[in-house]
């Protein structure tokens, strides 16, 4: 049976249909979830896509966190449901308190749009099927991707093995070369690279495929546990 992936659409999201297409490409049923959605009962995994939710006003992700769906996403995550925030979605997850830290403006103040290499460092709903230590080429596209937190938090992320992806060549000043992290339970993940823009070599890179497939497998396991 096909898994049901919900892609949240905020006003200003712009990678929603990319994410939709990427999960559909591997056989999942995908649903766009408008930001006022209150019911996630038939959803097996949630993707918060990239973009500029609420125009990035105040701070990226600061206003999206007040959407009705974020309350539902918190409940969904508490039940063990897989939640992945990509780029702006990562920023929303930090503002909502589901992940620690904050995404600051890039060192050098440039919007960076490039194919970069990240190393898979730890297990999570998004990296479960990827080999630890493997290098993936995935695009980034952000102005605020410079992961920042206090040293105690960084220490905790390191010691609990929650840094799932690290940049090979740090493009934005991110602490600890962090490209992606997860929560303690490993079911809530945030990352700046866009695996949905790298799910097939015909669009430049197919290295995101293993991540998308991991997420779909995690969704399927969560679905069976419900």
């Amino acid at each position: 049976m096909s898994t049901n992936i919900g892609v949240v659409m905020f006003p200003g999201s712009n990678c929603d249909y990319d994410a939709l297409e990427a999960v559909q490409a591997f056989g999942a049923t995908a649903h766009i979830l408008w930001h006022n959605t209150e019911d996630l009962s038939n959803i097996d995994a949630v993707i918060l896509p990239g973009g500029f939710s609420y125009g990035d006003y105040l701070r990226p992700g600061a206003l999206a966190r007040f959407s009705a769906i974020i309350g539902q996403v918190k409940k969904f995550a508490a039940l063990g449901g897989p939640v992945v925030g990509i780029c702006n979605g990562f920023q929303v997850l930090t503002e909502a308190g589901l992940l620690p830290g904050v995404l600051q403006k890039n060192k050098g103040l440039k919007f960076i749009c490039d194919n970069i290499k990240v190393k898979v460092e730890a297990d999570s709903v998004l990296t479960h099927d990827a080999q630890r230590g493997s290098i993936l080429e995935i695009p980034i596209s952000h102005f605020e991707g410079n992961f920042t937190c206090d040293y105690a938090t960084l220490e905790e992320l390191e010691s609990q093995d929650r840094i799932i992806l690290r940049y090979e060549d740090n493009p934005n000043g991110s602490m600890g070369d962090i490209a992606g992290i997860c929560n303690k339970q490993r079911n809530v993940v945030g990352l700046m690279p866009h695996p949905e823009r790298a799910y097939n070599s015909i669009i430049g890179s197919g290295d995101g495929e293993i991540l998308i497939k991991s997420l779909l497998n995690s969704a399927s396991i969560f679905s069976d546990s419900k």
Partner: peptide
């Protein structure tokens, strides 16, 4: 102590 790329520029 928090880096400020805008201020530095």
């Amino acid at each position: 102590g928090i880096a400020d790329p805008q201020g530095a520029t």
